[in-house]
Amino acid sequence: MQAQLSTKHLLGIKYLTEDDIQLIFETADEFKEVINRPIKKVPSLRDITVANMFFENSTRTRISFELAEKRLSADTVNFSASASSVSKGETLLDTVNNVLSMKVDMIVMRHPAPGAPQFLARNIKANIINAGDGTHEHPTQALLDAYSIREQLGDLSGKKIAIFGDITHSRVALSNIFCLQKLGAEVKVCGPPTLIPKHLPALGVGVEHDVRKTLEWCDVANVLRIQLERQDIKYFPSLREYSLYFGINRELLDSIGKKIIIMHPGPINRGVEITSDVADSEHSIILQQVENGVAVRMAVLYLLAARK
């Protein structure tokens, strides 16, 4: 069994091997035990400084990364674009190089431009972790989603996972597709035709437009948010219509007649893609996903730090 990742950076799930993903999961198992101890902290990263650079808004991911870093005893600095010199016209490379000259070892970055982390990895020395780049990838979210499914169902091989909602604008969807497929799961997406990229079948992903049929097929439903902030034109007539045709409610879920695990990466638009009684039901593992997020991110930080 390998004990280290095949890569120095976490730019996307696309660049990980199945063994890398398994190693992250097994390491996360041990960190999950650590964060349930009375003292939830280990000294592994005590000589490491991590910069969290968020060029785009985030609550969950930023807090989750920061907690993961602190529980590994790393020093952290936080940066958010709105309160920085970026608004004065500084380039990304200049901003990051300025931070790096203060002896930072790792960068966790969220950026609206797809490929921004790849650009950094080519030009600077620190380990880069992609915390979401535009509509491209959000690898740690996909890892914690798959980790949460593994916790519920065991090995993912052969499991049927459906991703609902705005696939076109979702980095979570793309990372999830790569991750689940590498672990041997079957993946379908379901949403209005306008929100599903037309080349998706080339990735081996099934495309469906009927929510009921998809729910009957799947073991796990990962429901994504409608990303209104990324939609420059109208992709569907109204939120009400979307919710009527593509939303998941209790009545629909109960009529399926089997237990389906409901996931959501947050933030939830209650009453749009998912109703409150589904989000808060016994089917939902939304809060477990958040808890697992810290353990999985600790594993990623720890394993990348080991690669120097």
Binding site: A3, Q4, L23, E26, T27, E30, E33, S44, D47, A306
Partner: peptide, 22 residues
């Protein structure tokens, strides 16, 4: 007790080690 996360040779040793169960 697993001591992987407490070792003083993290990032200093040639061969990485896997964490074990506590």
């Amino acid at each position: 007790l697993d001591i992987t996360f407490y070792r003083d040779d993290f990032r200093r040793r040639e061969k990485p080690i896997r964490a074990n169960v506590t």
